[in-house]
Design a protein around this nucleic acid. Structure first.
Lengths: 159, 159
DNA sequence: AAAAGATGCTGGACGATCTCGATCGAAATC
DNA sequence: GATTTCGATCGAGATCGTCCAGCATCTTTT
């Protein structure tokens, strides 16, 4: 599906999505038209969903992040989901198995804002909120190389 | 801290980080050297943490995602954190208040892999795992415009 | 097995883009 | 009100991206 060159390109782009075609070409050992074509196809196939920029929430004044688990009251599931989607401070939301229906990440500027936002869903769902104290791992992609990942797992397991 | 032009630039770059300086310049009404300078300063100040690429996990064979809540056994906190950091299938991890010490996102190729990875921390922590069934909101930044966000909140609240 | 077709790469040319230096203007400071 | 500073623009030179023609390799067809 993806060959070594593709993975190589992706690895470089994960670190800096604005790397020039020429630079990419030099690093993987291709010509720039070839790199251009490969990127085009990676986008076309949906492997690359988007080139984007990672913004520090703190720089925007969001001093607090929280993980909110949300259990909509009976019959309120869709309303709650719509509500979450429409509140832009929710920066991520997953629908999961188990008692908690949704697990979402919330960006807020103050505890007051947190309270304000949770109030808006309080009559439609039960929520459990955990304030984020630190981020040991910030968003990163899974291993690009399947084989390497498996091998490493074995090594760690053996030790 | 950030002016309208900066926010405008960021908004465009969130959608496509590879937008050329010229195009950015045209869209915000500046010259390209000015845009270049602004981006440089946004990076320097840490507002822009990185330009990166969003990869579809499915394209890499990760058919399953899970949210794992992790409660290290007494005295095992640091060991567990290190372990999580060293397992690349964890694509995100937050240290939170409350009973669950860590909340992490796990990318796996199969239920078997999930089991294998959780086994590796089973003797050092209790875990609760929720399989992700859908992603109502995929990673997005919080509102770039503070004032707009506040205003909207009021409107929604009033209705 | 030879021919035909498809795929993916290269190199060069041309047009577009970026960067650098010089200069200008507006706002803040004294 | 003069000065300083910051951020903007402009133009020239350098760099980069895209298009195209040609070539090698692999697969398919007969």
């Amino acid at each position: 599906m993806l060959d070594d060159l593709d993975r190589n390109l992706l690895e470089i782009l994960v670190k800096d999505a604005r790397t020039s075609l020429k630079e990419l070409a030099a690093q993987v050992g291709l010509s720039s038209p070839s790199v251009s074509e490969r990127l085009r196809r990676l986008e076309e196939r949906g492997v690359i969903r988007a080139f984007t920029v990672e913004i520090d929430p703190l720089a925007l004044g969001y001093t607090l992040q929280a993980i909110v688990r949300i259990r909509p009251l009976p019959g309120k599931l869709h309303i709650v989901q719509k509500l979450i989607e429409d509140i832009p401070e929710f920066g991520e939301c997953d629908k999961v198995t188990g008692d908690d229906c949704f697990v979402a990440r919330l960006f807020v500027r103050s505890i007051g804002d947190l309270d304000g936002i949770l109030d808006r869903i309080a009559d439609k769902a039960e929520t459990s909120t955990a304030i984020i104290k630190a981020q040991p791992i910030r968003r990163r992609p899974p291993p690009l190389d399947a084989a390497a990942s498996r091998d490493r797992a074995k090594v760690l397991h053996a030790s």
